[in-house]
């Protein structure tokens, strides 16, 4: 029964994930006095890409072809570990929250290699920036997860999710996790998904060489990754209230943040992430003190 529920959960989450992206875009356009594409546009985009011919550079190796599968595989595997629809619905025996972060690192590793693989200047630039950002983000992710784990005495996602009492440290850790989410989902102020300026891109520059079905996979993977991080906040860090409502609140918060500020200068991300790091350290400390 449990495995059936887990299977159902992952199918539903993957199916819904492009909608979240579409919804964020819709909210952003609403604030910007625009109509914008419909909320189902990401689905049409995926269908369009999946039906397109793929162009692969002659200079690439097997890594380029393999990376999209590594990425979508890793985000899906990580999503299996998150009890989104309720405590108990996840593969908690397979791995804990720490494992989740490292499973994601596996996908990122291949993505960065693939960016370099084609030998274009943009891919290399994107890969270098992505690794630079992730080296700042991962410690924050780990520490904030530690903080919420300390509260219940286990790094297991189910145990954290079913820990019913609200503590102040959870709030602080959630703040840090939100910064991680912004960075991991390529959102303003760290990255800008909508830009057409190839020189400013981070994630988009890395995947610039992809087309057709591979690009559809990568796009889908980033939708799933977004749901994953939103779920970690909604279901694990703040396990109170309705899951769907919390997801919408997070989506609205991300959208509002995106239109209300400019993207940071690349090296300013260091400041933002070190602030989040301090936040997560504080969360760990006050959690250890019992608040």
């Amino acid at each position: 029964m449990k495995y059936l529920l887990v299977a159902l959960q992952i199918v539903v989450l993957i199916a819904v994930s492009p909608f979240i992206t579409g919804l964020i875009k819709k909210i952003k356009n609403f604030i910007r006095l625009r109509k914008g594409p419909g909320v189902f546009q990401p689905y049409y985009d995926l269908a369009k890409l999946a039906g397109k011919e793929e162009v692969i550079s002659r200079d690439t190796s097997w890594i380029f072809a393999f990376a999209p599968y590594a990425v979508i595989g890793s985000v899906t595997a990580a999503l299996l570990l998150v009890p989104a629809f309720g405590p108990g619905i996840s593969l908690n025996r397979a791995g804990d929250l720490i494992a989740m972060i490292f499973i994601l690192a596996f996908g990122r590793f291949f993505m960065a290699l693939a960016g370099l693989d084609a030998g274009s200047a943009f891919g290399g630039m994107g890969s270098s920036r992505e690794m630079f950002i992730s080296s700042l983000v991962e410690p924050v992710a780990l520490l904030s997860v530690f903080a919420v784990s300390l509260n219940c005495g286990s790094t297991d996602a189910q145990a954290v999710a079913s820990y019913g009492t609200f503590r102040f440290s959870t709030l602080v850790a959630t703040g840090a996790l939100f910064a991680v989410t912004i960075a991991e989902t390529s959102r303003i102020p760290v990255d800008n998904r909508e830009t057409h300026l190839e020189l400013t891109m981070i994630h988009e520059a890395m995947v610039l060489e992809y087309s057709g079905r591979s690009l559809a996979l990568i796009e889908l993977a980033s939708h799933i990754k977004q749901v994953l991080f939103f779920s970690v906040i909604a279901a694990v860090a703040v396990p109170f209230g309705n899951y769907a409502v919390k997801m919408l609140v997070i989506a609205a918060a991300v959208a509002a943040l995106e239109v209300s500020m400019a993207k940071m200068r690349l090296f300013r991300v260091v400041d933002m992430m070190s602030f989040s790091f301090v936040l997560s350290v504080i969360a760990v400390v006050i959690s250890a003190m019992g608040y």
Binding site: K28, I31, R32, L33, R34, I188, P189, N192, E194, T195, L197, T200, E258, V259, S260, M261, A262, K263
Partner: peptide, 16 residues
């Protein structure tokens, strides 16, 4: 200039 730093709202105002 606003949109080049990913700042959407001012650009919407300017385009009007």
């Amino acid at each position: 200039m606003a949109v080049d730093v990913g700042f959407g709202y001012p650009n919407a105002l300017a385009s009007t």
